[in-house]
Every structure is written in structure tokens, then in C-alpha cells.
Nucleic acid binder design. Structure first.
Lengths: 233, 233
DNA sequence: CGGCTTGCTTGACCTAGGTCAATGCGGCTT
DNA sequence: AAGCCGCATTGACCTAGGTCAAGCAAGCCG
């Protein structure tokens, strides 16, 4: 049984749609689980057996071709929901980018519970609609943006989402943060190669728009200019 | 008041979640409307004022950059749902690719009705999840596939979706069909230029995988080979 | 301390697909 | 039937980003 009362994401995850009694009932179905960096929770093409809420850490959703090309199709942060409820196999794999903690449910148990709780379903619908909007924005990036626009967009997006994931209500975004992924994964997310990612980052560094204190850290020195590059203004 | 009893998509659109009484109530809120090719139903960035079901025809969802680059982020066929329920502005425009007929609702009226009808919301959630899966598959295409893989994938997809939209239960896909878009729009959907689209189509024609009887028609002569190209096998 | 390992950067070169500029062609209009 | 007009195709050339191949720096371990 999960201890929902002390869960750090209880006010932001879909669980926030529930009243205490309902929350307790859902808590009985779920179980907290640690996932270490690189570990895969769901394999692409497998039957969708589990769904989960992210408590801590960052995970990727990814699709691959037979010949090994990979595209990351989504990145989930704390309080986000993972998985494909209501039947079907999962069309993408789910793998931890950092050590993470999730609150996991068997899909069938979750589906049953959701059917009985329209408020939960409503919340899930809202989230799915938001996720769809984000996916579509990313389609624009992949289809039409240049390499430098892509990198700038990614840095802004990570800064925003890590800011939103933090509990502080006064930090809409972060100016210094740790990348939750390596260069290869940035490439897989942006539809670029590792070399292009690296070159574009050094270009931004040389233009004094960002600093790169170490391989995982980014400091945004001139957010305005970065945003201009990102939106192709 | 719409005449739902005779609606050609009543068994496939989200309305199929409703019992006759409910359907009549929803029908009172909606109104059938013709949209002619090229006409825009919703502008990118505008407040989301309407939602709709597609009865006939094909529409595109698209996003543009300030400097005029366009990416089509979705294509909707008969029985599909259009719009961004539950608040927010629409992050993409909706424009008819062919003459079309839609069953349109004001967003607020629809939202109110949906809140009272969990079955309808459930159907909407399922559709949104499917749409999200499709968007993510397309992200793989835009991020990692070559031009010929993209064109092949598009032809298969259109053939499948036009087949599914037809009422015949024995036609899972079509071997001859009319493209619901011109070359430019194919490019905007695939993240390619018009010239590359044209060159790839003639390449497929010369390989005798397809025929192009006129600018809008396609005949798939060797579906197996086309599928192999599409999946990068 | 030196030698590995792992991930990142940099450089030199190449190519898929973009750009620019004709040319073609079917359908309308007069 | 001649002239447009709006696409689509084709060709010649160019470039952003991919590929291939060294280097390089930080952590780690003996």
C-alpha cells in the first residue's frame, strides 16, 4: 500500500482529483517502486500491463526502427502520468533517464478504478489533451526547425518543466539546471546526431547565451536571446 | 437541431457512446455545417470556441512559425473529433483540405454536456489517446525517416484511413484512392519540400510500386514493397 | 601516480534534401 | 483554338547537417 498522504506529487498528479476516501482506495492498488537510470519499465510493442505516476526523476518514451534509429517521443517529469490505459499494446518503450521513483498500478486494476471515477478520468483526459498539444508542438520542431532552433527550444523546455516540477510557486523556470539526459538522448529527442548537438551547444556557449559548467549542467545567461532563437523570430 | 438518426457517422463518432435520449439532447446543441476546401474553421492561437465531429471530408490541423514555415500536425477524417475541449486556446489551426461537412458545437456547451456524461468522456479519452499514439508515430517519421520512407508511410496511412472511413467492413485499406491534399500539403505534413515530394513520387512510379493516373489519384500496385519502404525494413 | 573507460568535442569530408529556375500540362476562358 | 492559370515536374546547383575519424577531459581503479 502506498502512503499517499505524504506523497510529494499528491497535489499535482491525477490523484488530486480524488477525495480522501477514494485516494485511499486507489492507494491500495498502487505500489511505489524505484527505477534506476537506464532501466526499462515498459518495452515498445509489449502488451500494456502497467501504468504509473512519476514521483521523482525523469523518464523517456521512445520508438525505434528495425535498423536501430531511435526517436524519443516524450519525456515525463514528476507528477506526470505514464502508460497507455484502456487496452492496447504500448506503442513506445518507457525507460528511466535518471534514477526515478514511480507509483505503479496494473493496467487492469487502474482501468477498473478509473471507470468508476469520472473525476479521475476527466483529469486524465485533460492531461492527455495537454500531452497531445505538446507532441504536436514537437512535430513542428522535428519537421521544420533548424538545428539551432531545436537546441534552443529544448533548453527552454527543460528549464520550464523542471521549474514547474519544483514545488516553489515562484519559480516558473530555472536559469541553472542539470540536464536529465546525455548528448545522444538530446539528439534522439531532437532528431539530430550527437555531433550536431555538441556543435550547437558550443555555438550557444561562444555566443555567451549559455554556460556549460560541466557535461550535465546548463546555465542560461540570456534567456531572451535563447527564446528568440527557439521561436525562430 | 441536427438529425442524428440519419447521420452517416453516428456509429463511429464519439456520439456512439450515448443512448437515444442523450443523443437527442446532444443533437440539440449541435448544428451541421458545410466547410469548403481551403476554409479555416479555427485559427491557430485563437481561443477555442468550437468543437466538432467530422461527417464528410478531410481537414488539416497545422502550426506555423512567424517566418511562414508550416507543419501539418494532424489530419482528420470522417467520424474524427476536432477541437480542444476544456478551455485553453487552440494551439493549431483547423482548415478544410477538401469540401467537408461537420457537426459543430460551441465549446462551452459541449464541455458542459461532456461533464454530465462520463461515457462520452470515456470515448473522448480513448480517441485522444489514439490520436496521441498517432502523433508520436509521426514524430518518429519526422525525426528519423528518410524522404522515401516518409512518402511511402504517407501513402499507406492515407490508404488505411480512407479505407477505415468507408462503411464497407471488408475494405481495411484502398488500393486506389484520391489524395485529399496537394503536393505542398504533403510536404507540410512530411517535413519536406514540394520538389522532394514530387521526386520521390516519380521514383516510386518508375519502380512500378505505384501509378499516378492524375495529380490527385494514386494506385498502389505493390503494397508489400511500399510497406517495406515505409517501415525502413 | 599512470593507464582505462566513457562521454564529449572538434575537424575534414560527404550527401540527402533544399533552393532556384525553367519547363510541362491539363483545365478554363474568351 | 489560343492564351492563361495553377499545379506539378525536372534539372542544376548548394548547404545544413550527417558521417567518419581523431583527440580530449573527467572520473576510476590498480
Amino acid at each position: 500500500m502506498s502512503d499517499c498522504d505524504t506523497c510529494v506529487v499528491r497535489n499535482r498528479a491525477i490523484c488530486s482529483a480524488l477525495v480522501p476516501d477514494e485516494l485511499a482506495a486507489l492507494g491500495k492498488l498502487g505500489r511505489k517502486q524505484m527505477v534506476s537510470r537506464g532501466q526499462t519499465l515498459v518495452w515498445e510493442g509489449d502488451e500494456s500491463l502497467v501504468v504509473a505516476n512519476v514521483i521523482q526523476g525523469v523518464l523517456k518514451l521512445s520508438v525505434s526502427t528495425q535498423d536501430g534509429r531511435e526517436q524519443i517521443v516524450g519525456v515525463v517529469f514528476p507528477s506526470d502520468f505514464i502508460g497507455r490505459p484502456f487496452g492496447k499494446e504500448s506503442p513506445y518503450g518507457v525507460t528511466a533517464l535518471t534514477d526515478a521513483e514511480v507509483c505503479i498500478f496494473t493496467r487492469t486494476a487502474f482501468d477498473g478504478f478509473a471507470k468508476e471515477h469520472p473525476d479521475l478520468q476527466h483529469k486524465l483526459l485533460q492531461r492527455t489533451l495537454d500531452e497531445l498539444d505538446r507532441a504536436r508542438q514537437w512535430m513542428m520542431l522535428l519537421g521544420r526547425k533548424t538545428a539551432s532552433e531545436r537546441i534552443a527550444t529544448l533548453l527552454i523546455e527543460i528549464s520550464d518543466r523542471l521549474g514547474a516540477a519544483g514545488c516553489s510557486p515562484i519559480a516558473p523556470f530555472l536559469e541553472k539546471f542539470e540536464l536529465p539526459m546525455d548528448r545522444q538522448q538530446m539528439g534522439d529527442l531532437l532528431g539530430l546526431t550527437i555531433e550536431t548537438v555538441s556543435r550547437q551547444l558550443t555555438k550557444l556557449k561562444e555566443a555567451e547565451i549559455i554556460e556549460l559548467p560541466d557535461r550535465r549542467s546548463v546555465v542560461i545567461k540570456d534567456r531572451r536571446r535563447l527564446e528568440n532563437i527557439a521561436t525562430a523570430a
